[in-house]
């Protein structure tokens, strides 16, 4: 049964405030996994449904935002795998006690800072990441054509460019 400090006593206004604060972040995370719009919508909805079913178990409302983003990532991974025809276990349910604190970086203001960092990278990193971010459903073959690069190089180049960008961002944060 819910207790007085249970999240289950949340009212509709508080719920809608959560939606207003976090649904854009959750959508961005789902799309960052390259999900189609339909699958991304399912991933976001799945995260809200996890909150519905875990409402009685959540004791720290301050961490709900990070929990929602973390859970969206989890559901996006699962839906991405099922979209590829993989068997996904129902047993792999996200732990309500373990929101990822790094989820806080999913924020529009921070994103604009990262775009400025991206401009410091040379080519092909700048164009590759730009394409990858703005067209999450694009295949490597399509990106290869746009950038005139061998298709086999896209994956390794993307990983290297993302590592450089992440290093720049983390360096600035220190």
């Amino acid at each position: 049964m819910p207790t007085d400090n249970s999240f289950a006593i949340i009212d509709q206004a508080a719920w809608e405030d959560l939606v207003a604060r976090y649904d854009g972040r959750m959508w961005a995370v789902a799309r960052a996994f390259g999900l189609s719009a339909a699958d991304a919508a399912d991933a976001v909805q799945g995260a809200w449904l996890r909150l519905v079913e875990n409402a009685d178990a959540i004791r720290d409302p301050e961490r709900i935002g990070a929990w929602l983003v973390t859970t969206t990532r989890h559901e996006a991974v699962r839906l991405g795998r099922s979209a590829r025809g993989e068997i996904v276990s129902d047993l792999d349910v996200p732990d309500t006690a373990l929101p990822d604190p790094t989820a806080a970086v999913v924020d529009a203001d921070f994103g604009r800072q990262v775009w400025r960092r991206l401009d410091l990278l040379g080519e092909p990193c700048r164009s590759l990441i730009r394409l990858y971010v703005l067209h999450p459903e694009a295949r490597y073959a399509q990106i290869a054509v746009r950038l005139d690069l061998p298709v086999g190089s896209i994956g390794p180049t993307r990983a290297r460019c993302m590592a450089r960008l992440r290093a720049l961002v983390e360096e600035e944060a220190r």
Binding site: G24, R25, W27, R31, V69, A103, G111, V133, E170
Partner: peptide
Amino acid sequence: MREEYLLAALRMGAGTDPVPA
């Protein structure tokens, strides 16, 4: 920092793919 979170932040910063109504 997870790569997907960095990508998500970039997507939010670009503002080109808002959450559908």
